[in-house]
Amino acid sequence: MMKQIARIYMLESIRNTGMSIGNLSPAFIFLIMSVICKNMMSGEAFDYLVKGQFLPVSILMLIFSFAFSSATIYLADMKANKTFQWIQRTGVKPHTYYMGMGIGVFTLLNVFLVLLLIGYSFIIDISLSSYFMIILISNFVLLALYPLSFILAGLFKNEKVAQSMLVPIMILFMFSVTMTTMFLTIGGKNPHDYYIFLSWNPMLYLNDSLQKYLNLINDTWLPQYQYCIILAVISFGLASIAKKVYISK
């Protein structure tokens, strides 16, 4: 049953061409820009630009748009057109649908993440182990964000509202980490000293891990295994809130 739900989610996501292109293009635009820059720049500056900006933003955008925001819009749409009422009457358990759709979301993310990283492997030199670790932490970040998509979809009236509301949410999630890090670095301060204030944001753990795997920093704020634990705890916490949101509706 979960396999069928996952298949349906993937099929709908891929067939919705406009949405797929819209969600994939931000991540792949940065890859194209990297290719262009490779022909204009060289050496350390180019490496820093791609590893410090283009690749992290690509992955952040991929997770956010393709997996998180499209899942939220998909769910908000399901809510608006009474799909949940239909599903409820089939007798399928909510966690079965949650897991089934999750398999679809994670499969799609991993397919496009691997493609994106293969693309970058032609431009910059990153070890195979780093690639695997990037994929691993990306999956943990999605694990934390996935239940949030159910909460947001539960709160928004329909997909149009969800689409508009996701823009400020994306800005909050992405730029609260990248901008803070950049400004603190420019100001000569260690961003790690301030990360405690951003510990609510799953993107923090992704961004910090990417910096490490791309050899831009020597150590992450906390050990990697702790990042995975924190993200798993966030995921379980948000999943229980998501369950409450759907029961109350």
């Binding site: 349906i8 099929l11 919705n16 799909t83 009422q85 009457r89």
Partner: peptide, 14 residues
Amino acid sequence: VALQYQFFSSYQHL
């Protein structure tokens, strides 16, 4: 109870 809504608008891309 099975309630048939006037239209089925779910799963538009299936």
